[in-house]
Design a protein around this nucleic acid. Structure first.
Length: 422
RNA sequence: GGCAGGUUGCCCGAGUGGCCAAAGGGAGCAGACUGUAAAUCUGCCGGCAUCGCCUACGUUGGUUCGAACCCAACACCUGCCA
């Protein structure tokens, strides 16, 4: 049995695999070159992609060689999803996203040493290919009746599916073929929603080259209510700090439900089994301390952003949710909290703005009407004091250290504004 | 190409001339209870200069004192026929 396959299984990262025993043996026999692909459908990867990166890290730690594919060509086509036909992105847009995603991905793996990772782009072997070669060499191995039987395709037959999306599976399968021929790649993995595309590649290799290769799928992470994990009120949790701040990222994981936190910890933390067992024990014994949630949020933030960003997020949360009065905090602490919250800087001209304006400017409410609603509901705070009068204005004494105001809506939506020094 | 039906707020979905910023459900937010958790109950849920005004019911134009609702054209979608 393979240690790394055992570990992946224990971490709950194996939802599906081709012959498990054979795969475990293969991983044990020596360094395996494996690949995982990311399609550029947005300017950044998100939390869902992180699951794949964690698997890639685990495999590389065990001595296997990663090929990280960014789909410069598949991103131009779009894989079919049940929700309906995608809108095509322009070639320039996709090319731009390929670059940003490559830069994101390479931070997670080691590009030196015997198990060095390598970046590949499927545009390199598809852009110059002729339609006739594609249809003869690849298309010939795909029975349409089999393609029609796939779940995603079946789901779309009623409402319709373009030939473009229908053909996606051929491109991804060709990637596996190409990477096997060029680099001897014998394992592909991806999210369980990719399972159909992945096994199609395995089958293409068998039909075309008579090669038997392996595949693995990770499970889709869900919340306690069964919905997809990775969305917040403000949308997807991105890895790009400009799209999801390290503080928001940290908070997202801190909010994990008790019933799910251990599952997430196994996936996103590289702590040992003993450590995680201990945290699981703590969830039962002292749930209110949320030790597992803190460990999860700290580990993942340090990995995706940096230990310094993790510390800043922890310090910001401690200041905002801690017991001490905000005006007791040193100016330097507040300044970094305010920076962490991406607080806008307001000019100090004449009299100070009203509370409604401040709540809106800090971003805790989307509009002034919403700010007034929050105040009426008793859920709006300035510097941890509940706001009661929607027509009140700030006074000089409200400014912490003469320039900061911390805003909050409800219990956990926090923002800030700062004022220019007068 | 012909015939029939459809296009409503984040999503689903009622509404067929004034009582419609638009029923109901879901999602979301807040309050209470907690642990920055879950469950439950209650309230909110287009914008603004908030007892009023503005913008909205596929698009454009028309009828009317008044239109999400009637008429016309256009766009897109669905079903049946060719």
């Amino acid at each position: 049995m393979s240690a790394v396959f055992d570990e992946l299984t224990w971490r709950g990262l194996v939802a599906n695999s081709t012959d498990g025993a054979a795969l475990a043996q293969h991983l044990e026999a020596g360094p395996v070159t494996f690949y995982v692909g990311f399609d550029p459908t947005a300017p950044s990867l998100h939390m869902g992609n992180l699951v794949q990166l964690m698997v890639a890290r685990a495999l590389q730690r065990a001595g296997h060689r990663p090929l990280l594919l960014v789909g410069g060509s598949t991103g131009l086509i779009g894989d079919p999803k049940a929700a309906g036909e995608r809108v095509l992105n322009s070639k320039e847009t996709v090319a731009g996203w390929v670059g940003t995603i490559q830069r994101q991905v390479e931070r997670f793996l080691d590009f030196d040493g015997p198990s060095a990772a390598r970046l590949v782009n499927n545009l390199d072997w598809t852009s110059g290919m002729s339609v006739l070669d594609f249809l003869r060499d690849i298309g010939k191995h795909f029975p349409v009746n089999r393609m029609l039987a796939r779940e995603v395709v079946k789901a779309r037959l009623e409402e319709g599916i373009s030939y473009t999306e229908f053909s996606y599976v051929l491109l991804q399968s060709m990637d596996y073929l190409q990477l096997h021929r060029t680099y001897g790649c014998t394992l592909q993995f991806g999210g369980s929603d990719q399972w159909g595309n992945i096994t199609a590649g395995v089958e293409l290799l068998r039909r075309s080259d008579g090669q038997h290769v392996h595949a693995l799928a990770t499970p889709l992470l869900t919340k306690a209510d069964g919905t997809k994990f990775g969305k917040t009120e403000s949308g997807t949790v991105w890895l790009d700090p400009a799209m999801t701040s390290p503080y928001a990222f940290h908070q997202f994981f801190l909010h994990a439900e008790d019933t799910k936190v251990i599952e997430y910890l196994k996936v996103f933390s590289e702590r040992s089994r003993a450590d995680i067992d201990e945290l699981e024990h703590q969830v039962v014994e002292a749930p209110h301390l949320r030790a597992a949630q803190r460990a999860l949020a700290d580990d993942i933030t340090a990995l995706v952003h940096s230990p310094a960003e993790r510390d800043a997020a922890v310090a910001a949360a401690a200041a905002l949710f801690g017991r001490s009065d905000l005006d007791q905090l040193p100016e330097s602490t507040l300044a970094s909290v305010v920076a962490e919250l991406a607080a806008p800087v307001l000019p100090v001209g004449g009299e100070l703005p009203g509370v409604v304006e401040v709540l809106e400017a800090s971003g805790v409410v989307p509009s002034r009407s919403a700010a007034r609603r929050s105040i009426a509901e008793g859920g709006a705070y300035l510097n941890n004091n509940r706001v009661v009068d929607p027509d009140a204005r700030l006074v000089q004494g409200d400014l912490l250290h003469g320039r900061f105001v911390i805003t909050r809506r409800g219990k956990r939506t926090v923002g800030a504004v700062s004022f220019e020094r007068g």
